[in-house]
Nucleic acid binder design. Structure first.
Lengths: 142, 142
DNA sequence: TTTCGTGCAAAGCATTTGCAAGTAG
DNA sequence: CTACTTGCAAATGCTTTGCACGAAA
């Protein structure tokens, strides 16, 4: 675990980000969490470990990490922005029943393309909305 | 043109929305505009035609139209939400140079699917970010 | 030592809400 | 007439900013 933290510290330094305790802990949390947390969720989690931490620091840090390309924001209508450390291109599934966001492991023909209809592609985002497998299964039991 | 307005009025009534002048004009604007306007853009456009209109009415109306499924919101990180009346599934391209949002006329294998890895699909959203064809061309002239 | 980051409180904005007056059916 | 909608202003809530103190290089 210490080795992993050290690795994260190196990543920050490589991007010229001072690896303060707060930043490292936030970055660590984003790496170990699979729940695509909101700012609120990050804050609630951090307060447990660092009781004096402020929301301003959370905002400052995630903004910095996004700028440096170390995390990615996920915009969803009528919902708070979420963040993830998995910066590789992939799609998402949002369950409208349980609210979870699931990383989809599907191929997309555009993942390899650098151009579409003459436009140069720099980013690609895709998400599905509906009811996830688990919710469907539990509904069938009712 | 009157015929078109009448058609829009019918659409509102079918969804049990009282076709007030403000609502009809906002709905009309969203139908004729191809620029995927923000709330701000809708307001600025409406004020020209209805000088007394308030932002609250714009918000009330678009929220209602979204609820009823007559328009679709488009969430983009670090950018205001945009709206469009084209509710059919399609992808978008966002140019980071000129800021335009372009409807893409491409097929997607998931447009016809109703399930993905066991999850039931109700909505599908995809967008590319990069530099649009026009901006690439004008850059090449420099 | 010097520069940068943190935490607090205040400021800024977009969006929502409450309400009196006006409008649609 | 009765219920709903509008426009205004106030309230709300998320995010950013200014600043003094503290921490990192």
């Amino acid at each position: 675990m210490n080795k992993k933290l050290y690795r994260l510290k190196m990543i920050l330094q490589k991007k010229e980000i001072r690896p303060t305790y707060q930043r490292l802990k936030i970055f660590e949390y984003l790496h170990q969490s699979k729940e695509h947390p909101t700012v609120e969720m990050i804050y609630n989690n951090m307060v447990k470990k660092i009781p004096t931490i402020s929301k301003a620091t959370i905002y400052n840090t995630i903004n910095l990490l996004v700028e440096k390309g170390l995390i990615v924001p996920l915009a969803i209508p009528d919902s708070d922005t979420r963040f993830e450390s998995n910066v590789g291109w992939h799609h998402h599934f949002l369950c409208e029943r349980c609210g979870k966001i699931i990383d989809l492991d599907i191929k997309c023909e555009y993942f390899e393309k650098r151009e579409i209809q003459g436009h140069r592609i720099k980013e690609l985002h895709g998400y599905f909305k509906g009811i996830c497998r688990k919710c469907l299964e539990s509904k069938e039991l009712v």
